[in-house]
Amino acid sequence: MSENIVFVKQKEASPVRSADQFHIGLVVDDVPRAAAELSAAAGYEWCEEIGAPASVVLPAGRTVLDLRSLYSRSTPRIELVRSVPGTLWQAADSGIHHLGYWSDDVAADSEELTRRGHVREALGVRPDGTPHWAFHRGPVGPRIELVTRTLQPVLERYWATGRKPS
């Protein structure tokens, strides 16, 4: 029995574009081990770990979480995120935790994803309250992470040098 797949042209603009996808996020309990395994298996090279305490809005309210990750210098880009017990940042059996996309307007794109049935699980906010990243969970597949495009030049320098942004 063959299954017919029907491709439907979108009637309205998507809140994210496939061309803006820039990394695959994996949440792991042991970042050095995961990095070593990916290096041995596929030749990945890694940047220094980045991260810090971050102000995050979760469904239960605003909190500060110590969010840390390690990006590959190699492409396709992989982000290894240190797990944070009791949050959405827990290691997934399937491996892929999220797909990261650049966003020119995190607040608007996040609202549009919510309108389309993708539950917002977390929103990273700057001290002035401006969103600079968001995580959404849709009905299927990995989470979608929106990242403000204003971070793109900073991350590109990080990937090129492998050193933490100053």
Rank of each mutant, 00 (worst) to 15 (best):
M1L: 13
M1F: 13
I5C: 02
K9Y: 02
K11G: 14
K11W: 02
A13T: 14
S14D: 07
S14H: 10
S18R: 14
S18H: 14
A19W: 05
Q21T: 06
F22L: 05
H23L: 12
G25W: 02
V28R: 11
V28K: 10
D29R: 13
D29E: 14
D30R: 08
R33W: 00
A35M: 10
A35R: 08
A36P: 07
A36R: 15
E37S: 04
E37G: 00
L38R: 06
S39W: 01
A42W: 13
W46R: 07
W46K: 08
W46Q: 07
W46N: 06
E48D: 15
E48L: 08
E49D: 05
A52L: 06
P53M: 09
S55H: 10
V57W: 04
L58R: 13
L58M: 15
A60C: 02
G61Q: 08
T63I: 09
R68T: 15
Y71K: 08
S72E: 09
R73Q: 15
P76L: 13
P76H: 14
P76S: 11
V81L: 11
S83N: 01
V84S: 01
V84T: 10
V84M: 07
G86S: 04
G86Q: 05
G86M: 07
L88C: 03
Q90W: 00
A91V: 02
A92S: 03
I96C: 04
H98P: 02
L99M: 08
W102E: 05
D104N: 08
D105W: 10
A107L: 09
A108M: 03
A108S: 11
E111Y: 01
E111D: 13
T114K: 06
T114V: 13
R115S: 12
H118M: 03
E121G: 08
E121Q: 15
E121I: 05
L123Y: 02
L123H: 00
V125C: 09
R126N: 11
P131A: 10
H132K: 01
A134K: 01
H136S: 14
G138C: 06
R143D: 06
I144K: 05
R149I: 09
Q152A: 15
P153Y: 05
P153D: 12
P153S: 11
V154Y: 01
L155C: 02
L155K: 02
L155M: 14
R157F: 00
W159D: 03
W159V: 11
A160M: 07
A160I: 06
R163A: 09
P165Y: 11
